[in-house]
Amino acid sequence: MDNNLPKIYSKKAIFGFSVLMSTLFGGVLLYQNLIDIKKKREAYIVLGLSILITIVTIVIVNIPEEPKSSLAYVFGAAGGGLLSYYFVPTYFPDEEHYPKKAIWKPLIIAAIITMSFVGLMVYAGSLENT
């Protein structure tokens, strides 16, 4: 392990957050990795692609009369696979040599975002029942 290499989020973390949260979330982790190694242009391309995949996911999941949330996991796995198994090896061919960032900060952010959405959904549901 080279001490001069910056800490990065692992491809497992990127994949996991893509599946459990969204490709956008995994894309933000990879974006941060690319910013840390001074690849700003590539970082913005990855972020743009992540946003696009997330928008397509939202549209397709909500097309059926009864939205299928399981499709979100399929798209998350596909997007996470693209980020983790194409982009990470492309920009970090020696990824295993980089020290890894802890996932606590993104995990806490993900929990706050999730709790906020759940709280808003509960609040909106209570407004409908009045």
Rank of each mutant, 00 (worst) to 15 (best):
K7C: 02
K7V: 06
I8C: 07
K11V: 02
K12Q: 10
I14G: 01
I14N: 03
F15Y: 09
G16N: 04
F17W: 03
L20W: 04
M21E: 05
S22C: 15
S22V: 07
T23A: 07
F25R: 02
F25W: 09
F25V: 08
G26Q: 03
G27D: 08
G27Y: 12
V28P: 01
Y31Q: 14
Y31L: 14
Q32R: 14
Q32W: 10
Q32E: 11
Q32F: 10
N33A: 07
N33H: 05
I35H: 11
D36I: 03
K39A: 10
K39R: 13
E42W: 04
A43T: 02
A43K: 05
A43Y: 07
Y44G: 14
Y44H: 12
I45E: 05
V46S: 08
V46A: 15
G48E: 13
L49Q: 07
S50Y: 12
S50T: 09
I51N: 08
I51K: 07
I51F: 06
I51H: 05
L52D: 11
I53C: 09
I53N: 03
T54I: 09
V56A: 15
I58A: 15
V61R: 04
N62C: 10
I63A: 03
I63Y: 12
P64Y: 10
E65A: 14
E65G: 12
E66Y: 11
P67K: 04
P67S: 00
K68P: 00
S69A: 08
S69L: 09
S70P: 00
L71G: 07
G76Q: 02
A77S: 10
G79Q: 00
Y85D: 05
Y86M: 01
F87I: 00
P89L: 03
T90C: 00
P93D: 03
P93Y: 01
D94R: 11
D94W: 04
E95A: 00
E96D: 08
H97T: 01
K100R: 11
K101T: 04
K101C: 04
K101M: 08
A102V: 00
W104T: 00
K105R: 10
P106L: 01
P106A: 04
L107T: 15
L107R: 01
I108F: 05
I109H: 01
A110G: 03
A111R: 03
I112N: 06
I113C: 13
T114D: 04
S116N: 12
F117R: 10
V118T: 11
G119M: 06
G119R: 14
G119Q: 14
L120A: 14
L120F: 15
V122M: 14
V122F: 06
A124Q: 13
G125R: 04
L127A: 15
E128S: 13
E128Y: 00
T130F: 15
T130M: 15
